[in-house]
Design a protein around this nucleic acid. Structure first.
Length: 520
DNA sequence: ATGCACCGGTCACGACAACT
DNA sequence: AGTTGTCGTGACCGGTGCAT
């Protein structure tokens, strides 16, 4: 009505109208959408009130579908839905009703809130009818073809089927079902018809090898039953050696693909380093790497252990560390130079990653007097558990001081749970370790005989047998529990490469240690 | 196999205010 | 000037569904 009043106040006699046929609720939804799109923007409280009313009349809509209508983010709608359900039993009962175990998205599709039941049905159908087409499995189980395909991949890959890490239906009785043998023969037929293999001498040779090696279950079971007793040891030894050889062949063939991905990720990291102060988006970085945004994010994390955004954040903080100790720029300028738009965010992120606030870091010249470990074990009654082992020196030569830390992730982020400083690679012990699964990460700190160090650069060595580049190392995950003490955990040091995330933790004052080591 | 849109949950960021 | 806490927003993660 306010548009009519506005037109009248402007002295207009006519106004364009669009006729609408629908219920009062539908008219309300339309009105909210129009008000979001035209005229003065609605206040936040108005938009939230609209979202609450939309949820009341369309509880099956997804959060984002409601959000698109109300001019809010999906997360805000999600929070409103949660609060509304707590306050209004009617909404909660609607949520629990069986036909509302899904949400309708903005595209009109229905998405399940929990897909485990459908995946369970699919896995049971695949196990019972392994030769049934995927589309039939998908139709009968009420899931998409993609989901049915994924369930089948899990079943024949020997994994526990089911969404995420949750367990689902039991897999096939044997890790190698009849379908995998058929798949293997189909692969071999497909390869044999490939002209790039057929038309080269080496390709034909490879195909002959594959034909002789690609035996089916029936083949080898028939053969092994006839092995004479006096030949068993020799056959076992030869079969194992052949298996190792084929594993090496597979690794070697797969390597060029990894290299292409590695080049793409390295290129993206170079772009990050050259444009630290700019607003870099995932799309732009993915374009640098010539991947889609989705594929790029996946391969980047696989290669570096960090998402592109986390890696970029680490590079920015690493640059900030250099500027803090190497220049007299104030905090606001440094925050801006390394790409932060808010000093508050910069300060918070710096302290959580480095362990010191920016000003404190500058005052101490980049060295912490001590490294505060994160919470989890110093409190009274902490379990007397420890992680012990050795840090092995890099193949390239001796290393300087070594910082060994226990982290929840395979990359060093934030404060370690426990840490220790070694004069040189060798035995270490981390005491009073809390229960959990941890990674032992080691970082060697190059130093020169006069006590200068080579942090964040490659200029630390003096040619006296001291490495010019810092080294890092990481263990496999270590589970620490009262009744499952870990065996010794050794960590091999290796020179830092371009794909390693920057080390951000403020270093202990190793200069004294370095001087003591050098003089003694 | 891949790209893309979408889901809910989680976490990081930026803006802002209050404080030192 | 710099730090800290809060709030809203948006990106990320691991996943699904569909199209090509």
């Amino acid at each position: 009505m306010h548009r009519l009043r506005a037109a009248a106040l402007r002295g207009r006699q006519e106004i364009e109208v669009t006729y609408f046929d629908g219920s009062r609720d539908e008219a309300f939804l339309r009105a909210v959408g129009e008000n979001i799109a035209h005229g003065l923007p609605l206040s936040l409280s108005d938009r939230k009130a609209a979202a609450r009313r939309i949820l009341a009349v369309r509880p099956q809509w997804s959060d984002r579908a409601v959000a698109a209508h109300a001019g809010l983010s999906g997360k805000t709608v999600s929070a409103i839905r949660r609060r509304s359900a707590e306050e209004a039993p009617r909404l909660r009962s609607a949520e629990e009703s069986p036909h509302l175990n899904s949400r309708i998205g903005a595209d009109g599709r229905r998405y399940p809130l929990d897909g485990s039941a459908g995946r369970l049905r699919a896995s049971q159908l695949i196990s019972a009818r392994p030769d049934t087409p995927l589309r039939a499995i998908a139709r009968d189980a009420g899931v998409s073809v993609g989901t049915a395909h994924d369930v089948r991949r899990q079943l024949f890959g020997g994994e526990e089927p089911g969404p995420g890490r949750t367990s689902g239906a039991p897999g096939p009785d044997t890790p190698e079902g009849p379908k995998s043998a058929a798949d293997r023969l189909a692969l071999l037929r497909s390869l044999s018809q490939d002209p790039s293999l057929q038309n080269t001498r080496t390709g034909r040779e490879l195909l002959r090898w594959l034909h002789t090696q690609a035996v089916t279950d029936d083949d080898w079971q028939a053969l092994t039953a006839t092995v004479p007793a006096h030949c068993v040891d020799a056959v076992v030894e030869l079969a194992r050696q052949c298996a190792q050889t084929w594993q090496r062949i597979a690794d070697d063939v797969a390597r060029p693909k990894e290299s292409a991905v590695e080049r793409a990720v390295t290129s993206a990291i170079r772009s990050m380093r050259e444009n630290l102060g700019e607003e870099l988006t995932i799309d732009a970085l993915a374009e640098t790497a010539m991947f889609s945004r989705f594929h790029f994010t996946r391969v980047f994390k696989n290669m570096t252990g960090l998402s592109p955004v986390h890696f970029l954040s680490a590079l920015r903080l690493q640059e900030a560390k250099k500027l803090l100790v190497g220049t007299e720029l104030n905090i606001a300028d440094i925050s801006n130079v390394v790409g932060y738009r808010s000093i508050g965010s910069f300060s918070t992120r710096f302290k959580s990653s480095v362990g010191l606030a920016p000003v404190a870091y500058r005052r101490l010249g980049g060295f912490a007097e001590e490294i505060n470990v994160s919470d989890g074990g110093d409190e009274p009654g902490a379990l007397p558990l420890s992680v012990r082992g050795s840090v092995l020196p890099p193949a390239s030569g001796p290393a300087g001081c070594v910082l060994v830390g226990l982290f929840p992730d395979p990359v060093p982020r934030g404060r370690p749970v426990r840490c220790a400083l070694l004069d040189h690679p060798g035995a270490y012990a981390l005491e009073n370790v809390p229960e959990g699964t941890w990674y032992v990460l080691a970082q060697s700190v190059p130093y020169s005989r006069d006590g200068r160090d080579g942090r964040d650069g490659a200029e630390g060595g003096d040619g006296g047998g001291v490495p010019a580049v810092p080294c890092v190392g990481a263990s496999e995950p270590v589970t620490v529990a009262l009744h499952a003490l870990p065996s010794p955990v050794d960590v091999q040091l290796r020179p830092v490469n371009a794909l390693d995330p920057p080390e951000l933790l403020a270093l202990l004052d190793v200069r004294t240690t370095a001087l003591r080591t050098a003089s003694g």
